[in-house]
Design a protein around this nucleic acid. Sequence first.
DNA 1: GCCAACGTTGGC
DNA 2: GCCAACGTTGGC
Length: 142
Amino acid sequence: MGYWLVKTEPESYSWSQLVSDGTAHWDGVRNYEARNHLRSMSKGDRVLVYHSVSDRCVVGVAEVTRAAYPDPTAQKGDWSAVDLRPKGALLRPVTLQQIRLADALSGIALVARSRLSVMPLSAEHFEHIIALGGGVQRLPRR
DNA sequence: GCCAACGTTGGC
DNA sequence: GCCAACGTTGGC
């Protein structure tokens, strides 16, 4: 099982929008390193969703429901998208500041590579962030 | 191939 | 709103 973190600006696409949509095409990524991470995702992988800019916290957990396919929003160039489905919200959002301060999370790409929008996580970092958030409130089946 | 200019991201 | 970081573009 792979673990990942994706960023989104809540003003353009928020966790609550993902929850109400039920699923989303995670497209529009236009950075080669981030794209390559998308291509390394497998169906069933777990994904933390982070709100950048105005919110600056990890808010929820999603699951990859479709591995990488050509990004339909790309007019030109070789870009990829995946599909995500929300699994549940963290009981308490975990702030960037908390992540910076946590010794167990030192070296995490979210801090070390602040402009990367799709990044891998170790299982330990994934679980640690969820623990900081007090666990996951699973969404009801829909 | 180098590098200056430029655009974007994202923290503060 | 500002600005640092950094990726991309394009002239040479």
